[in-house]
């Protein structure tokens, strides 16, 4: 079985993230860039299948500027067999539609039985790219799963819905997305880090993939930074803090 895991390099959520006020796009210089944690869980899902079935091939795929190759190296050091890096200057600032069309083309050329992605990235949080890819490829999507069983004859999973969960299934090939309820990812070990350097990473450009420009696109027209919150009163409890808080809540009509 061939599993492609979609990986996105994002700003570390442990730091203050910035937008470039001129373009409305992510300021990549201001924060450390890391593999989004949800993608590591997606990769872990694929690697667990490989652990029990050695015939499984795991490919990590990303789209992003040159430095996004670091996220593929991380995936390779964790245990992925190879990487695919879609990189092209014309993709800078690509919206979800352009991103999905490009990744769908890259998936078509790479080949797969299953695509595993995170349910949403921590930066964009749109959560639409996997469904767009599934639509381009005319495939079933099992989205926002809290558990999954991937077998040669299909995928079964439990989806987190709005008022409960749903048991869902589909045949292969299929796209599935995992939520934080999936197990945490393994750490790369020393051997993994060493062998990662010898694993192949293919680079694909827009011309290689022959993706036409999407006629429709989303455009940011304004960006405004919210003023930082100022800290207010801070009391050390000496026994009366609770009643002072109650007075504060009453005075501000909050109770």
């Amino acid at each position: 079985m061939k599993i492609v895991v979609l990986v996105k390099q994002v700003p570390d959520t442990a730091e203050e993230r910035k937008l470039d006020p001129a373009t409305g796009q992510l300021d990549r210089e201001s924060t450390d860039l890391v593999v989004d944690e949800i993608n590591e869980r997606a990769l872990e899902t694929a690697l667990r299948i490989k652990d029990t079935n050695k015939g499984t091939e795991v490919v990590a795929m990303t789209m992003g500027p040159d430095q996004a190759t670091q996220s593929l190296r991380k995936a390779l050091s964790m245990g992925a067999d190879s990487g695919v890096h879609v990189v092209d200057d014309s993709l800078s600032g690509a919206d979800t539609g352009r991103t999905a069309a490009t990744l769908a083309a890259a998936l078509r050329s790479t080949g797969f039985d299953v695509v595993v992605a995170g349910n949403e990235s921590t930066d964009g949080r749109a959560g639409v790219v996997p469904a767009m890819i599934a639509e381009h490829l005319q495939l079933p999507l099992l989205g926002s799963l809290i558990s999954a069983e991937i077998a040669d004859d299909g995928v079964r999973g439990v989806r987190q819905g709005e008022g409960g969960t749903l048991n869902v299934r589909a045949g292969l090939p299929a796209v599935l997305t995992v939520t934080e309820r999936f197990p945490e990812a393994r750490f790369p070990n020393f051997k993994g880090i060493l062998t990662a350097k010898r694993k192949p990473v293919i680079t694909l450009s827009v011309a290689d993939l022959g993706v036409a420009a999407t006629p429709s696109r989303s455009v940011v027209i304004s960006t405004a930074e919210r003023p930082p919150r100022a800290a207010g009163r801070k009391l050390i409890d000496d026994g009366d803090a609770a009643s002072e808080l109650a007075e504060f809540l009453v005075a501000n009509r909050l109770v």
């Binding site: 006629p215 696109r217 940011v220 960006t223 919210r226």
Partner: peptide
């Protein structure tokens, strides 16, 4: 909530 961003769609629905 650190930023408020406005966006539109060009060339489609």
């Amino acid at each position: 909530g650190a930023y408020t961003v406005e966006s539109v769609v060009e060339g489609g629905l």
